[in-house]
Amino acid sequence: MKSLLSFHKALVGLLVIYLLIPLIGTFLFSIAGKWDHTILPESYTMKWYIELFQDERFFDAFQRTLFLIVMSVGLSIVIMLPTIFIITVYFSKWERLLQAAAMLPYGIPPIVGAVGLIKLYSNSLIPIAGTPWILIGAYFITILPFMYQGIRNSLRTINAVQLVDAAELLGATKFQAFRTVVFPNIISGILVSTLLSVALLFSEFALANLLVGGRFETLQIFLADKLNSSGHLTSAIVITYYSVILLLTGTVLKLTFKNEKNPAGKKKNRVLSLLRKQSRDKKFALEGENS
């Protein structure tokens, strides 16, 4: 029994190392001065970060990326949450259709999708070709699988249909039932989907490059541009936005942890179960970032 446990621990340890090594390597490279034929850098410097943080282009690109992410993820939640809820609860026979639609983005490579979108919108009545708005639309589709799976699974887990039935019989309207009984129970699922989507969109390059390119320089386009000039600088960029994602993830999870704390939450096992859940969510989100 004991040897089996240590075997499991070793396996988890290996996985963690496997996931962390590229990150540590990138971090070291971003603070390395001279690093040619040694295992660890010969000298350390902060000059890449100083150079980066003095570059206005970097902050502009960062802002644009954030704008794109907030818009597309926000739009996705606002549209998909009611859609998935209504379809799962009231039109379950349409669920397969929604499921198929949500899986489509996996089947279309970004390049194909981008070329198709450019063709479709270049002479369209809706003049969004080459603007960030077309990118927001494309991102909405890109994150559809994550949003759909996350929200639907949460609804299934809590057996939302029956909870709504019960609430309605107790005098709640459909909207009240959703707000008081369904939403509080799927918020953590929505959160995980959101974090996954944010992490995914942070590192999206293909669509951004093809659809808007230099006209709306996002972080990844900026990164690709810098790749030609200095590897150290690009490492610094990567580490910076990883830190931002990590900070974001941590804050959001901490906030919901606080929100879920209620009278009985003071009891030890409730807190423990939440902590367990929190660490699981975090791990989930981290995996998404590394992919």
């Binding site: 809590i158 057996n159 029956q162 909870l163 039935d165 019960a166 609430a167 309605e168 019989l169 107790l170 005098g171 709640a172 309207t173 008081t180 009984v181 509080p184 129970n185 209620n262 009278p263 009985a264």
Partner: peptide
């Protein structure tokens, strides 16, 4: 009438308690 107007109470096989409430 809709369920909320019927003045009936119901108990489900799987209880259907609200997990976010004590």
């Amino acid at each position: 009438l809709s369920p909320r107007q019927r003045e009936v109470g119901m108990v489900f096989q799987s209880y259907a308690l609200f997990p976010n409430m004590n």
